[in-house]
Design a protein around this nucleic acid. Structure first.
Lengths: 336, 336
DNA sequence: CACCACATGTATAACGTTATAGAGGCACGG
DNA sequence: CCGTGCCTCTATAACGTTATACATGTGGTG
């Protein structure tokens, strides 16, 4: 089916090895033969078989980015950045969706897909430290997000505790006192939800505000629907907060919708803030105040680190980086 | 580095071929040996090398979905469906982003990535019929979207003319008369923009309404920002429509934002409708009326068709399917 | 003129897998 | 007791590539 080196060699009247040398420039080739070979390549439309190359050389030039939610624009935006950076470094980035599924995450680490890529950038949310450590890893792995800590891999994430702390601090500064948190952790499996809950509690304590469990709404998933439903439940209970922090922008947008539907004015009656700075929040009504992680830094750093590992930085100790974030004030939060 | 068949064979004290037979069940293996082999596999943690398998067998079990805009939730939602369907059929789907870039689209067809996947679902927007036809394709290709027509490949899309026609018809039915179109085609390269523009014009004509060029705003890209800017320009020109059709939901949401910012009430003063039915439109304020393509059908059909080709339906003639769509009324359109 | 360095090309052994051909053992019918 | 067939298992040749070792020719140097 495909055109192979052998076909080119036959056409150009040279040996197979010479064609290979022309293609990858591994060894010098005379100008005349190079031209003949090149011409044959152009005529027959040859492109190297990646599987065979990988088998022989151990490299494909492919890396993968595995994310838990394809539907979350945060990851789509991150992926876009990572794809660009990978291309800049001569790699192709493939996306894989684990759909926040435990089995899918495990399969990613053990599975045969590992054999086809040179390295993996992985954002685990359902498996823990032990499970990551237990795997024998033959190709480089860079972790992103707060799913796992203290493992012997490069790890890039924002400080989730500090991020939600900063969000609450902003709400406190504009005079809010009854601050709800939508999208808290309801069981043990999503680490960043726990961390953001901690930041929420710490910030309340720092501001001298009481922690009211009835203002904290756990959700199982973290989409718009979950945010809306949780907010509705909170309102149904008769708890009207004067501010709401969403686990992420999607949850915040869901909460925003529930508040609007119930006739509460945002931001006058209730201020709303999210985390992620997805583009959607710049176009919602009202526009959404948010904590913006430095996606550019996360995406680029993850790719660069992975490529460095692939190209032989085994000796270097695993790197743990906390990328910066900043508060972006928009219409959804104003002083009381 | 990785564990290979040879390692398992050594451990279990059988031949390499026997291990292979245990793994793929190609030939019967005695119960006792099967167990020994299985045990060795479990102990050493073997997983087959996909590159080698591909090289030998010609199949990887990998298919790819190449989309023009990762940031567009429409494609993310479509991808999610396709990934599920692929998994159901025993395939893994990889996503690739062409970023609506001409070079990237061409590379996809010629490039060496083709060698690593069994087939490709492709939504081209920058290359045309001739360029698709000119490629010698060695692995199956299914096209989606309206980028290319009448090529000798399976092709799945909605009827874009009919879709925008339906949208305009709805606006007319609720009494709107000055209907703008944001996100028209401004040059030759995006086919679906042309088609949707045509549907707009045809529907106006059918309703006996004049076509006013000043109400038609072309954009180069089709995101929220583009919709907002185009709408602002329209307003700046003093053209206040009583309804707006966006090329897609993102453009419509951008237009919505521009209208809100300018103090116009949606839907009372201006009705807004989009195309795509992305989740975001179910949570915006106001929620967005839209033309909903059957994403489930498109995603599943594309994958099934591709898998059928991979598994040997070469004889069958190329299939062209137009998937259905329907109008979903939400808050952004009410009668005058 | 023998020798060596160097530049260029080639033959070939892997990489890990699967499919083909065939080897060995055993039971059964003639 | 031999031929036949079946049931297991094994040896081995590919798949397309790259790296190593080797072969050839050409020019320069002692």
């Amino acid at each position: 089916m495909g055109v192979s080196l052998k076909d080119i060699a036959g056409r150009a009247g040279v040996s197979l090895a010479t064609v290979s040398n022309v293609v990858n420039g591994y060894r010098p080739v005379g100008e005349r033969t190079r031209q003949r070979v090149q011409q044959a390549i152009d005529e027959l439309g040859y492109s190297p078989n990646l599987s065979a190359r990988h088998l022989r050389r151990g490299r494909t030039g492919l890396i993968a980015l595995a994310i838990p939610e394809l539907n979350n624009p945060y990851f789509a935006e991150l992926a876009e950045i990572a794809i660009r950076e990978a291309a800049r470094l001569g790699y192709t980035l493939l996306m894989e969706n684990t759909a926040a599924d435990r089995e899918a995450e495990l399969l990613l680490l053990d599975g045969s897909r590992r054999h086809i890529i040179d390295g993996l950038i992985f954002s685990p949310v359902r498996i823990g430290r032990e499970e990551v450590l237990a795997r024998t890893i033959d190709s480089p792995l860079v972790l992103i997000g707060e799913g796992v800590h203290d493992v012997s891999h490069d790890h890039i994430a924002i400080d989730n505790v500090a991020a939600s702390h900063a969000a609450i601090q902003h709400l406190v500064e504009i005079g809010r006192r009854r601050i709800a948190f939508i999208g808290a952790a309801d069981d043990g499996d999503r680490q960043s939800a726990h961390l953001r809950t901690r930041g929420y509690r710490e910030a309340l304590a720092a501001a001298g505000l009481p922690y009211r469990p009835r203002l904290v709404a756990p959700t199982h998933e973290f989409g718009r629907r979950d945010g809306r439903n949780a907010m509705r439940d909170l309102l149904a209970l008769g708890e009207l907060p004067d501010a709401v922090l969403g686990y992420n922008d999607l949850v915040a947008i869901g909460a925003l919708r529930a508040l609007t539907e119930a006739g509460h004015r945002v931001p006058q009656d209730v201020a709303v803030i999210g985390i992620d700075d997805i583009e959607e929040g710049r176009f919602s009504t009202p526009t959404l105040t948010t904590i913006a992680p430095d996606k550019e830094a996360i995406g680029r750093l993850a790719v660069r680190r992975l490529v460095a590992r692939i190209e032989g930085a085994e000796v270097t100790a695993p790197l743990t980086v906390q990328t910066p974030f900043r508060l972006i004030r928009r219409e959804s939060t104003i002083p009381v």
